[in-house]
Design a binder for these strands. Sequence first.
DNA 1: ATCCTGATTTTGACAAAGTCCAAATCTTGA
DNA 2: TCAAGATTTGGACTTTGTCAAAATCAGGAT
Lengths: 140, 140
Amino acid sequence: MRDPEATLRQHDLPVTAQRLAVLRAVSRHPHATADAVAESAREEIGTISRQSVYNVLNVLTDKGIIRRIQPADSPARYEDRVGDNHHHLVCRSCGKTEDVCCAVGDAPCLTAHSHHGFKIDEAEVIYWGTCPACQQKPRN
Amino acid sequence: MRDPEATLRQHDLPVTAQRLAVLRAVSRHPHATADAVAESAREEIGTISRQSVYNVLNVLTDKGIIRRIQPADSPARYEDRVGDNHHHLVCRSCGKTEDVCCAVGDAPCLTAHSHHGFKIDEAEVIYWGTCPACQQKPRN
DNA sequence: ATCCTGATTTTGACAAAGTCCAAATCTTGA
DNA sequence: TCAAGATTTGGACTTTGTCAAAATCAGGAT
């Protein structure tokens, strides 16, 4: 993220230490959970309440400044890479998450066309697998 | 589901009233939540503990007899349509869920190929949108 | 048909991830 | 510098699900 402060102002959000810290934490740690964001933010500004972390993450998500992803069996994760339609690759065993550029973003199966009368606005793809590190470890 | 009892036996699962009731509930109500399954099962057999509902749903899922889907902002949902690679269409507003046959199941973007060294075993797709009923209602 | 053994069910406590609310504090614009 | 409205905080609470121990049940052997 270029300039967190400018980003906040552009979206008419008062600039606070908490918001800057959370925004930078998300920027530094793509796919971090709220908990991890809180930890990272605390390293920067000393202290921030759990509720504020959620408040900030929610408002940033609502404004489209960050994106929330919610894979099964994982708390929500956040990233500041927004505006493209990239997808995710998640390790079933440890939760490690990687970005994946959709090779054929406009393939028929991913195009938001009408089905059952729904107005479709997004096709979300999650690739499930096992990361290199977990492939080594004995399967528990 | 053809014969719930036979299905249980085929998987070496002792047949119990609770398992039959849960299995039939999932069959009758595709995409039902654990809570909805419990309600439906109770209509059939009078009473079943919350824990048993979870026990049964978990064992059936582990055996591959039913499938669990976990869309963002929704409790887990269950369906007995397994073995094909169909995807889901979910209403952002009310959670209504529909099955979607992937038009191009083997499109490059959905093929489980290697990325970042991960061993990929599944590509999960969720289409997000607004269902017909919610398109009518005023947007709150 | 009855009994034994291991599996299943039940009950109640517990855990994780978030949200709600009211009071205190801070940002911003005048 | 100040007031007004927005943000932050702390604590209680909710939802969804799991853990553990005791009670009960299913299925095979007698």
